[in-house]
Amino acid sequence: MAEYVREEILIEHSFDRKSCRHEIGGLTAVLHCHHFATLISRLANDCKLADAKRILADCAEDAFHTVLSNYFNRHDISGIERRARIAEQYFSAVGLGLMRVKYAGYCSGEVIMEHSHVDEGWLKKWGEAKSPVNHIGRGYVTATFSALFDRGRRVYSATERQSIARGASKSIITVTDARGAGEGVA
């Protein structure tokens, strides 16, 4: 087991030589690169078979809600500000970029991404995008807000107002309470 401390967050990483499995915080983790993340994001954008953009964002929300909630419980992290800092640091530690929670309330908030793995990977691979591509990032943001306030999944909705992939210097994601659109998932 290797432990990496980045500011406050403790990344508990292990690699099992027998199974060749990586684990972070007790969950199987896998290395992928920007080619994979952007190709899956492009698949989501172009898919005519299903609403794959929503599916990808929901999958990210589910996974990261588990990660963050587990972390907060295991390390007894309470308080919105402290939880937000941990969420920002985890985002960077696993290579997703640089995220800052500008403000967070029970019903709304805003997140700034000065760097984004998906957006910068997209730019590197294909140049500027015509529409938002960071569905994984949106899922991370809604997971963060649900974990900050001990709420369930599908409670928040995240919208990219501007994005690095479309040529902006930073991505801005606004968060709203989406309860009107559904009851959420506990």
Partner: peptide
């Protein structure tokens, strides 16, 4: 910058659950 530079690419190490 929150990015992992290795193998000539940007890497991430996310929960396998997402994929």
């Amino acid at each position: 910058t929150g990015l992992i530079h290795a193998y000539g690419v940007f890497l991430q190490q996310l929960p396998a659950m997402i994929w």
